[in-house]
Structure formats: structure tokens, C-alpha cells
Design a protein around this nucleic acid. Structure first.
Lengths: 162, 162
DNA sequence: CTACTTGTTTAAGTAACTTACATAAGTTGC
DNA sequence: GCAACTTATGTAAGTTACTTAAACAAGTAG
């Protein structure tokens, strides 16, 4: 495979991916409202990340920031939005009252899953033509690409301390 | 391969990719300035897409908008920035004076390539561990994912006309 | 020639972040 | 025990990368 062409394709495709992520389709909005969920809940990719992470249990703001890959104030904003819509709750960690733990509000985990189902379905259908081998390679490649940005990030952090 | 886990991973990874794209590393800025290129030239992913597209010859604004995947006014802004830094030039297409053709300014194609080399290098290194098969699968998967967003987009366009 | 379409730009606005700073809570060392 | 420092979060202000609506110019069709 021509690696230069691959790089070019990646450079052309990734921004498209990045831009397309934020966009719920009209079908998705219809699905959401059909489920009695207020359609004014705009769920950005960052919100999706938070909701997925919370599926694994309560997280502190700082931990969410790490998992999502953004700053703490950005997580504050994401969580504010979800809290305003009664999807998540904040509480202080009794073991360290500085820490704010974020968790699903009661009964909201299933609602969240249903809200994200349209996105999942679309992605599922998109990757459907891939063999298991190909899917594994896609994931591996995505992880490698993300890793290269982490390297940039760590480099920047390193430069900041020197 | 567990498809649900793949979908979750994609939903977690793609936003990270999208956010990381805009960030030149300090090493990259160093390289840029070492080549005598003014470091105030901020090259976003959109600019990269434009520069790559122009590598294939002059494009109209509208065509660039299609290739890059954004609106015409967004391309206007991208091109304005590049024009301000003398990297590209605009001229009207004599065959249809409504059309603005954008092309590299003389001698700038090589400069642009050198400006993007750090990005390319980083991506090259990132995908280096992939076998040819895996690289092909990565590209195929990316194209499929992008296609799913195009589908959303076309759906939205369809809904707008009904 | 008029009405409509197409292409681009300008203006205004939004979403999704960032950094700097303020406040609260916890830790360390004297 | 207390001052100095560190850590966690939220607020404020700003930036970036888009969007849509509208304006203007050029082209097309009847």
C-alpha cells in the first residue's frame, strides 16, 4: 500500500469525520422525540463520551476530563448541560470533598442508551461491510492515530515545563 | 469481534481524533520556523485539506467546499487566510466570471508541502506498525465512517426540501 | 427583457473548546 | 496548630471553526 497516499487520504478524511460527528440526523431527532425525550437535549460528541464513560460508574470531573480528552472546565460545561436536563447528578466525594462525582440520575442510564441508539445504529451499519479482521484493524489504526495526538499533547506538556 | 464494543470505542475515539487534529506540536512549529516560514501561519485541518486539494490543480470555491466538506463561506474564510499569507491566489474563471478559481501562488506548493511535512511524518509514524492489510482496512473503515456522515448529510438535505 | 438560478462574499451568530483566575478543600512541614 | 503550598472545580473571557441569511454579480431561460 502506498503510504503517502494513505497519509493524504487520512489528512482529507479525518477533518470530515471530526465535523460530521456533531450532527444528529433528522431521523435521530425524530427517534428521540418519539421516545418522549425532550428534543431540546442537544447531545454533542463530548456528551456521548461522558455518557459512555458514566456507564462504567461515577467519575470525578478530572477523571472525565482525562477520559474524554478535554479540559476540566470543558467537562464542567458538558456536565452542566446534562445536569440541566436531569440526566446526571453531581455529588461530593465524602472521602475528599473537593472532588465532584458525576453519575447518572436515577433511571437515566437507559434513557441515555436509547438517545444514543440512533448514532450507534448508524455506525453499526457503516462498519457492517467490514470483516472481523478489518474491524480489528480499523480499531487498531484509530488507536494508533489517537496515540499520535497524545504524543503531541505530551510533548506540549513537556515543553511547558521546561 | 464484539461490534457493540467497537461502536463504543469509535464513539469514544473519534471525538478525540477530531479535537487533536488542529494542534500543531511544538516540534512542528519549530520545524516550520526553522524553514524560514512565518510561524504566524496557523494551518488548521481545513487549510490542510484545501492545500492538498489544490495540489491537484486549481479549484473553484464551490468545488473546494465539496471536497473539504464545508460550506462555501467557510471555504472563503480558509482561502482568505491562505491568501493573506501569500500562499494562494484567486482569479476569476474567464469561462464564467462568477467562478473564483483558487490556485497556489507561484512557488508556494513546495512551501506548503514542507509546512505539512511534520504532520505527515507524525501520521506516517503512527500508522507505521500497521501491515499493508491493516492499513487498507483502516482506510476502508474511515471511508465507510465518512460515508455514514454523508448519508446523514444527504438525509438532512432531503428533509430540507420536503 | 424579466425572472430565475448560480457563485461568492459579507455579516452575524453558534458550538465547542481553551486559558486565566477565583474559591474551596486538602496536604505538608515547621 | 498554622502558614504555605497543592489540588479540584467552577466562572469568566476569549478563540476557533464552523453555520445560515442576505447581498451582489454573473449567467440562463423563456
Amino acid at each position: 500500500m502506498d503510504r503517502e497516499r494513505l497519509i493524504d487520504e487520512i489528512l482529507m478524511l479525518l477533518p470530515v469525520l471530526g465535523r460530521g460527528l456533531g450532527r444528529p440526523g433528522p431521523g435521530e431527532l425524530g427517534e428521540i422525540s418519539a421516545q418522549g425525550i425532550p428534543v431540546d437535549v442537544h447531545i454533542s460528541p463530548g456528551h456521548v463520551q461522558v455518557l459512555i464513560a458514566l456507564g462504567r460508574g461515577p467519575h470525578s470531573i478530572r477523571h472525565l476530563a482525562e477520559v474524554v480528552g478535554v479540559s476540566s472546565p470543558a467537562v464542567t460545561q458538558l456536565v452542566n448541560h446534562l445536569e440541566e436536563h436531569k440526566m446526571v447528578e453531581r455529588r461530593h466525594d465524602p472521602a475528599d470533598r473537593r472532588v465532584v462525582l458525576v453519575d447518572y440520575a436515577p433511571g437515566m442510564q437507559d434513557i441515555a442508551r436509547r438517545m444514543m441508539e440512533g448514532r450507534r445504529k448508524r455506525l453499526r451499519e457503516a462498519v457492517n461491510p467490514l470483516t472481523d479482521e478489518e474491524a480489528r484493524a480499523l480499531l487498531k489504526g484509530l488507536v494508533l492515530l489517537v496515540g499520535s495526538f497524545d504524543a503531541v499533547r505530551e510533548e506540549a506538556a513537556g515543553a511547558k515545563h521546561s
